[in-house]
Amino acid sequence: MSYDYEGPQASTRLAVEFLTVWMEQNRQAAVEHIVSVLDSEGGPERDFAIAGLLNLGHFLVIQVAKANGAVGAEELTEAAHEYLAYLSVHLPDEP
């Protein structure tokens, strides 16, 4: 597979790929795939992948805020922060 390693959309797309593989529940296969992408010749830097995962997390937590009725940038940000604070205390053992 070919990757374009430029910009936040590209890093977020990589994060979507990694999360999609991870969600298939075969964690060993997911780890092997992720490592093979990161270690491939010309592959992305680790910080690029981490930035993509953070972009994806940010996007998803804003979607949660929207689904819970938040509107406007300030309210969305506040609701997202509240949700993350809640998760930090009430994080389930299994996703």
Score class of each variant (00 low, 15 high):
6 E>A: 00
89 V>K: 15
39 D>N: 13
80 A>Y: 07
76 L>G: 12
91 L>R: 08
3 Y>H: 03
68 N>L: 15
11 S>A: 11
53 L>C: 07
79 A>W: 03
78 E>I: 05
59 F>M: 12
28 Q>R: 13
21 V>L: 00
36 S>F: 02
73 A>C: 05
41 E>M: 07
80 A>R: 12
65 A>S: 12
29 A>R: 15
39 D>C: 09
29 A>M: 11
28 Q>W: 03
32 E>G: 02
88 S>L: 14
80 A>T: 07
14 L>S: 00
14 L>C: 00
26 N>Q: 11
65 A>M: 06
5 Y>N: 05
95 P>N: 14
31 V>S: 06
5 Y>V: 02
20 T>F: 10
13 R>P: 00
74 E>K: 14
95 P>T: 10
11 S>H: 05
13 R>N: 04
25 Q>G: 10
63 Q>T: 09
41 E>N: 11
17 E>L: 01
88 S>Y: 15
90 H>D: 03
80 A>I: 02
72 G>N: 03
10 A>D: 03
31 V>L: 11
18 F>C: 02
30 A>Q: 04
23 M>C: 13
85 A>M: 08
79 A>N: 07
55 N>A: 09
62 I>P: 02
85 A>L: 11
47 D>V: 12
89 V>N: 10
1 M>N: 02
60 L>Y: 00
61 V>N: 02
2 S>G: 07
40 S>Y: 07
38 L>R: 14
73 A>N: 09
30 A>N: 09
33 H>L: 08
50 I>V: 15
94 E>W: 04
2 S>N: 05
84 L>E: 06
7 G>V: 03
43 G>E: 11
31 V>R: 02
53 L>E: 04
